[in-house]
Design a binder for these strands. Structure first.
Lengths: 215, 215
DNA sequence: CGCCCGCATTGATCCGTATCAATTACAAAT
DNA sequence: ATTTGTAATTGATACGGATCAATGCGGGCG
């Protein structure tokens, strides 16, 4: 799904000319919901959490952005969610005006972005099913399998799934509390489906977990 | 958000040439999840429910499509969800190949479609927040206010909100059971926030409901 | 080395929604 | 008019996950 993969060399050069590299330290904010969207980001390193807040403090994480992911496509004027770095994050920032002009000038880049947005929408539908109809164990298993696939696609180890985000982040992504997430991790570990390791888990019974996720 | 609003007359004519009108009776299926996506639809009348199923029968409705809405954008090859008509539905169907060619030929139509997809993604994020973090009453109130706004935007009466879908459909959209939805309707009626009428509700305390939805 | 301090785990109890079970309300069919 | 079928409402109870509370664990720092 990489946007850049479809671009010719001269177009890549154009993109490079527009982009400027940025770095955010752990817990630093990339942007907050409602703020005018002045840039689009392509993550090149680290993990970002994307979330919406209710006035009373309830939080829903709508996604985690990993290297290769785009941020800031899904808004016209203002950001629809907040984003902050979980670990140190590097990214390419494109000023919105330049980005917009480039997109208008390069239809097949737009086509690529549209396909990307469409893919995101499909993932969002899957997450609605998870949040509306799955129980705690199914939610966590789906999450772990999805993260495994994403890291694999990025060429990282697949034996152990890295989890740079906190338990609280996972809870807010899955619509659960931190205690329920912790208990469910323990339950999966006790039934030998996973092994909890520092900063991640090792999946011991992928078939069993896949069945759980499907059913 | 109508796609067609941005098209010049000659382009509208092009679209017309590609489209053929179709009708679906109540409860008829437009397409099912996994089936190869051979067409794109623009709804012109009636209401469609879009949903995903788990193997054990649990259902999550990911959206209701009203007149003006597009279906079939969010997939490359196969439909990512199923769709069926709630009441009699009329639509324009575009063969996928012709649609694809037109999009490639008309960049600003593509731009429009991309904006539409992006808007859908924003709605999906809002729905994640609802499913992950809101209680039953908040969910129903949000739903009613959203439906009110959508009908209003379509130029229909705003005093009474039409609800063509069943209680079960509403439950499966909000991640609740039919009993909880029914009880919550009764609760809102008892507290004089709504008046339940045949095939819809009248909103009596929009301010109070808006506060509930915000908090 | 030992003391925090934030995060994670585990336990006990509570509560909101699910589940199970009638009952009611219509509308269509006979 | 009576039957039948489907959707909605209402009530009683159960249960999964939330909440409240305590303990454990590891890392940084004095």
């Amino acid at each position: 799904m990489s946007i850049c993969a479809c671009l010719a060399y001269d177009e890549l050069a154009l993109l490079d000319a527009l982009a400027h590299p940025v770095t955010f330290g752990a817990k630093e904010t990339l942007f907050v919901q409602g703020q005018p969207a002045e840039a689009v980001y392509n993550i090149t390193g680290g993990t970002v959490r994307l979330y919406k807040l209710l006035p009373d403090g309830r939080r829903q994480i709508v996604g985690f952005a990993l290297p290769g992911d785009f941020l800031g496509l899904a808004m016209r004027d203002a950001f629809g969610f907040s984003a902050d770095a979980i670990e140190t994050v590097t990214a390419c920032a494109f000023p919105r005006s330049a980005y917009s002009a480039l997109v208008d000038a390069k239809p097949h880049l737009l086509r690529r972005l549209h396909d990307y947005a469409t893919h995101e929408l499909t993932l969002a539908h899957e997450q609605m099913l998870l949040l509306g109809r799955r129980n705690a164990e199914e939610r966590l298993v789906c999450f772990l399998l999805t993260m495994r696939e994403r890291w694999t696609r990025l060429g990282r180890s697949s034996a152990t799934v890295e989890l740079p985000m906190s338990r609280q982040d996972i809870a807010d992504f899955l619509g659960l509390t931190i205690e329920t997430v912790s208990r469910t991790f323990s339950k999966l570990a006790k039934s030998r489906k996973i092994l909890i390791v520092p900063d991640g888990v090792r999946l011991l019974d992928i078939e069993g977990m896949t069945n759980l996720a499907a059913a």
